[in-house]
């Protein structure tokens, strides 16, 4: 077993084991924490078996090692959480109003090109958008980083603009919570008003 904590080819805080297998310590720690929480009892036995199970899992089911580019910005995360909770509240109200509205409405599918390009940011934004009003993600295109959202009440002329703006705002909040400096610089620029090929 060769420990290579400072190997630039490996993700941070991981060590190579045997033939190209990589143990990522953050992942193992997270799995052990989940194990302890699932048992609901913080004892040495649980912690040790948790780490043992995590190591065995990582060896049996190796994940492709990717550089997630995950950064944690505490202030950004707090703002994201507050906005998410508020948006979930308002979107709950909005959907409730729509379901008791007897007026027929027309739905539509809207393309929203995002400014960030990394896989992690794209995924996180899509998950966040699912929780805001007018956010039901139908399709994600990785090649041009575009989200396709299904919106209700598309016959309201402002609805499409509002939905686009809310997706872009959610993207900016997400990137400011988890993105690296490059991505944050990207989302600080104004979004392009029209969709299409980037």
């Amino acid at each position: 077993m060769t420990l290579k904590f400072r190997d630039p080819e490996l993700p941070p805080l991981s060590c190579a084991v045997g033939h190209g297998r990589v143990l990522e310590l953050p992942l193992i720690t997270w799995l052990a924490v989940v194990w302890v929480l699932l048992w609901g009892n913080l004892s040495w036995a649980n912690v040790i078996t948790g780490f043992a199970v995590a190591v065995v899992l990582c060896l049996l089911f190796p994940l492709p090692s990717v550089d997630l580019g995950l950064r944690l910005h505490p202030l950004g995360i707090a703002r994201l959480v507050v906005h998410l909770l508020w948006d979930m509240y308002t979107s709950g109200l909005k959907v409730s109003r729509q379901m008791f509205d007897s007026r027929p409405y027309r739905a539509a599918v809207l393309a929203v090109p995002l400014r960030c390009r990394s896989d992690l940011m794209l995924t996180a934004t899509a998950v966040a958008v699912s929780n805001v009003p007018d956010g039901s993600v139908v399709e994600v295109r990785r090649s041009n980083a575009t989200l396709f959202v299904h919106i209700l009440e598309a016959d309201d002329p402002d609805a499409a603009d509002r939905a686009r703006r809310s997706v872009w705002r959610m993207e900016e909040l997400t990137v400011r919570a988890f993105g690296d400096r490059d991505e944050i610089a990207r989302v600080s620029r104004a979004p392009r008003p029209e969709g299409g090929g980037r």
Binding site: R106, A107, V109, A111, E139, R141, T146, F148, A154
Partner: peptide, 15 residues
């Protein structure tokens, strides 16, 4: 399965 009346506009279908 997009509903009986269809979609008002569909920017995914275009792409």
């Amino acid at each position: 399965h997009v509903g009986r009346e269809g979609l008002l506009f569909d920017e995914l279908d275009e792409q």
